[in-house]
Design a protein around this nucleic acid. Structure first.
Lengths: 231, 231
DNA sequence: CTTGACTGCCTTACGGCGTAAGTCTACCTT
DNA sequence: AAGGTAGACTTACGCCGTAAGGCAGTCAAG
């Protein structure tokens, strides 16, 4: 049987490779979230055994690093196709388009922002992405110092997402009103007032929890406008 | 021996409680990072067994939820002591002080931002914090709609941190120049130029990686100014 | 004073995880 | 043909979260 298995691999299964491992990881995460990516499941989805993966990646951390790199590379390819002027006042439109393009790609992988943020070393592809953004700012007349602060001010927004802390009404959306929350509401007058007025309930929240596209763009433009004024 | 152990508990060890469990978890995380918090280690640090914890918390997720709540409660106590005017144009100073106070407390627990962001349900204490911030904005003349957008624009900055994606020169800071990075540098002209000019190397990075206090405040003020202009 | 329920804690055990160590086999080089 | 090598597999270890059940101390009702 072990022989049979082995010859089957040789006959039909494409060889393992770092790239195939990473792409399989992305596929699994797309289906079951990042927690579903385990070395065993990853191997299984490739028709191999867990330990075989270690011939192509050093450990699981490197799988996650690689996944970030693959997605960031996709982003770089997409933003590389943007042809917008960047000189002078045009910088803002170019930066905006670049960031929203990155966001569009990240929207395909809802688990990705958390993984991007969990990496302690920055992927080369992400560095390339940032380099391009800094280049746009320099074209726009930013000093290196302002460009630096701008990157900090943007934070994860530079890559097209903002992790939201605030998720009113999440959970499995049971019909029954949570009594704890009801009691809580009395102590949250401003929040309750705000939400009751503002909740144009859009169930298609996107990246992060309540991180709707319009909200993302509002925050982004707020920052880009502020930067332009300091240019 | 099992009898001895048991009577020893009755004689000397303070009883377990949800609160003691959460405080022990914070202590362990402060020492060894959040990954060091396991149910077994947590129990051990309390002189108990892992399964005993389950009489006071439903599961590990609830431990993390509770930890966030404890820290957010501390923050609420601190910001509750702030006595600054909030009406009209004064809103900005009040909001700024509130946020920087939260930040000061979070700086004591460097692992905390990631845990705050990992929670899928928002802690009551965090909601209270947000409610206060929204209240300040309302006092400042914000519409509910603008206050809502403002909270989105601030994102995690509302609580005093911004997860930075960008960490030039992290890793175990080996003296030897990384040949991979050296080769990479040629393809990152803007980034390398910017950093060589800007790197007033401050080893006391604070929350996140490169998230220095001055950078945080720059980004925060950028947003607060932008909001004030739209008031 | 007994009894029986309750509470808080412990013991044992299970399945899953990442991965260290060692083995086998197909293939390439010489 | 001989020997080395790369890529896959097998086994096993020590963690993890937690399900299930048991046992001692407490305390109220009879």
């Amino acid at each position: 049987m072990s022989l049979a298995t082995r010859t089957r691999r040789t006959e039909s299964r494409p060889a393992l490779s770092r790239d195939r491992v990473l792409r399989a990881a992305i596929e699994i995460a797309d289906e079951g979230g990042i927690a579903a990516v385990t070395m065993r499941r990853l191997a299984e989805s490739l028709g191999a055994e867990a330990m075989s993966l270690y011939h192509h990646v050093a450990n699981k951390e490197q799988v996650l690093d690689g996944v970030v790199d693959v997605i960031a590379t996709e982003i770089n390819e997409a933003v590389g196709r943007i042809t917008l002027p960047t000189r002078g006042a045009a910088w803002q439109g170019a930066a905006r388009e670049r960031i929203l393009t990155a966001r569009r790609l990240l929207l395909r992988h809802r688990w990705a922002p958390a993984v991007f943020e969990s990496r302690t070393t920055t992927s080369p592809a992400v560095l390339l992405y940032y380099d391009g953004l800094v280049g746009i700012m320099r074209d726009g007349g930013f000093s290196n110092d302002l460009a630096h602060r701008a990157m900090h001010a943007l934070g994860s927004r530079a890559l097209g997402f903002s992790q939201e802390l605030f998720s009113p009404g999440d959970g499995p959306t049971t019909g029954e009103p949570d009594p704890v929350m009801a009691a809580m509401a009395a102590r949250l007058p401003h929040l309750v007032g705000m939400l009751s007025e503002v909740m144009h309930v859009d169930p298609d929240a996107t990246l992060g929890w309540c991180d709707e596209q319009a909200e993302f763009e509002f925050g982004l433009d707020l920052i880009l406008d502020g930067l332009d004024r300091r240019r």
